[in-house]
């Protein structure tokens, strides 16, 4: 019965009804009721297919239009209209939105509290050590870079103790020893330049004599450009002043040149000279730069003062120059800048 198609006249009438919207006043509800009563199935026939198709096409059109900014005004308008309502609804419903929390048990809350406390302390610790960690990372990076620049394999180590100033020795202890492949007389560097040499080693630590110590003597070479008839590369001995802080020349080094007539210019770099492998110092490690030159009339010598590149007051991570095939209990930074 439901499959019966409406008669053409019925269909026409229905179409007219829907097109006109409200019923024409000429027809009373009762008249319609009677007709419907005889043809009840048609009263609830499905929506017109054309509407379905038209509205689906509308959706497609909307989706297409939305690829362009055409719909923005509509979005804005709807937003303007609905936002106050949403705000109001959210405000009114605020007591209700807390309802799900009522079902939290005390154990839940206690767990959450413990979790948050743990997280809090972890984060606090992280914040406290962030700067230190960053500095440490920079140090390690500079050691890696130094190994690359210098072309030597390095064993990284941390400075664990500074010798007291009242002994007038400038020594430090590092936390790498013979187990890390370190032997006495090896050169110690940072990313900035030469630090000193290893005096003696234990299994897990080593004592380093800094080049600012008064007893330290390093072979140095002034590495500037050749000027006219004078060749650069004069050699001499770099001695530490051994002077503790507080005096004008504290922390400075002096270079006694072999050739007394040579006069290095201010700002020229002084590097070590040596045979490259053997102790005490490998060659080519930067020591410092020339600050001034003065001649001593009394002993007819010429002294060059050098400001070291390394800040000895804040030594932390250093590298010990080792032969490339050293066996170590820790990572060795190879000349290629990799860890081995």
């Amino acid at each position: 019965m439901s499959l019966l198609s409406p008669r053409p006249s019925e269909r026409l009438r229905k179409g007219l009804d829907q097109r006109k919207g409200p019923k024409p006043p000429s027809r009373t509800p009762r008249e319609r009721l009677n007709r419907r009563g005889s043809l009840e199935t048609k009263a609830v026939s499905g929506p017109k297919r054309s509407w379905l198709i038209a509205l689906i096409l509308c959706c497609a059109t909307l989706a297409t239009l939305d690829q362009t900014p055409v719909l923005e005004p509509a979005r804005t308008a709807v937003g303007e209209a609905l936002s106050p309502l949403e705000t109001g609804a959210a405000m009114i419903a605020r007591p209700l939105t807390g309802v799900p929390e009522w079902f939290d048990t005390r154990d839940d809350l206690r767990d959450r509290l413990a979790h948050l406390e743990a997280e809090n302390s972890r984060l606090r610790r992280q914040v406290e050590v962030t700067d230190y960690g960053r500095a440490k990372l920079a140090e390690y990076e500079s050691i890696t870079r130094a190994a690359e620049d210098l072309g030597y394999a390095l064993v990284p180590a941390r400075v664990t103790a500074h010798g007291p100033a009242q002994t007038f020795n400038r020594t430090v202890t590092i936390d790498a020893g013979s187990a890390a492949g370190i032997k006495s007389d090896m050169s110690v560097v940072t990313g900035d330049g030469l630090v000193g040499r290893v005096l003696r080693v234990t299994k897990t630590s080593a004592t380093v004599l800094l080049i600012v110590d008064a007893a330290s003597v390093v072979g140095g070479r002034v590495g500037g450009a050749d000027r006219g008839d004078k060749h650069s590369g004069q050699v001499g001995m770099v001695r530490g002043s051994g002077v503790v802080a507080g005096q004008a020349d504290s922390g400075l080094l002096s270079l006694d040149l072999v050739d007394q007539t040579a006069a290095p210019l201010k700002g020229e770099t002084v590097v070590t000279w040596g045979d490259g492998r053997a102790a005490p110092y490998v060659s080519g490690l930067p020591i410092g730069e020339v600050t001034d030159t003065f001649a001593s009339v009394r002993d007819s010598s010429r002294t060059v003062r050098i400001k070291p590149y390394v800040d000895f007051g804040s030594l932390d991570v250093v590298g010990v120059v080792v032969p490339g095939d050293t066996l170590s209990d820790r990572a060795v930074v190879t000349p290629e800048g990799e860890l081995r």
């Binding site: 309502l85 949403e86 705000t87 609804a89 959210a90 419903a93 209700l96 939105t97 309802v99 799900p100």
Partner: peptide, 9 residues
């Protein structure tokens, strides 16, 4: 309005 403002809770 309810779906957008209250239901998310």
């Amino acid at each position: 309005v309810l779906q957008l403002s209250v239901a998310p809770a």
